[in-house]
């Protein structure tokens, strides 16, 4: 089956085989974007979190047929070294990752959170960020999420001024 989607800003048509294949494997193996991780395959750990039309989705539990015509954003498309997303910038400034494996999922979930709640409280963070990190980087992540909210607000303010 052929699926057309916009992946990290680029329109692509891919032959996905079984239309119910989890989006995760299409992203990782067909589109060769390895930043989205396999952790459990049961939508339990959140390592595979990415954005579909700007909403957080656990891609191991999302049939690829549902992305037809939609916009998919992975960690590779969130930002890059030259132009990091505020969440990535905050993660760098707080030196969050340890082993690093779960981090893309957390950053994608955080990006989705900041889209909905630009200035999240600790309670908002506790409710929405429910991925699993084994190294225990939650303490720095929380600081990074608050910092990302500030960075994003600064960018928004600057953009407003420019207009």
């Amino acid at each position: 089956m052929e699926i057309s989607l916009t992946i990290n800003g680029m329109l692509k048509t891919v032959d996905v085989g079984d239309e119910n294949t989890p989006l995760l494997w299409i992203v990782r193996d067909l589109l060769n974007l390895k930043g989205t991780k396999f952790g459990c395959g049961k939508a339990a750990c959140g390592a595979c979190t990415l954005l579909v039309d700007d909403e957080a989705v656990r891609s191991c539990s999302y049939p690829v047929k549902f992305v037809e015509g939609k916009k998919v954003t992975t960690i590779e498309g969130l930002g890059d070294r030259e132009n990091p997303h505020p969440v990535q910038q905050a993660w760098i400034e707080e030196i969050v990752p340890q082993c690093g494996y779960c981090q893309p999922g957390f950053m994608m979930a955080t990006a989705a959170l900041l889209n909905k709640v630009p200035n999240p409280t600790d309670e908002d963070i506790d409710n929405n960020i429910i991925n699993v990190c084994r190294c225990g980087t939650y303490y720095r992540m929380r600081k990074a999420i608050h910092r990302a909210a500030k960075l994003q607000a600064e960018i928004n303010t600057n953009e407003t001024k420019e207009i």
Binding site: K34, G35, I75, E76, I92, P97, P104
Partner: peptide
Amino acid sequence: IARVDLDAKVFGDPIFGMD
């Protein structure tokens, strides 16, 4: 000093066994 693997881990580079 900031971790030397910080960028790779923040920008989703394919650095793990699974990748």
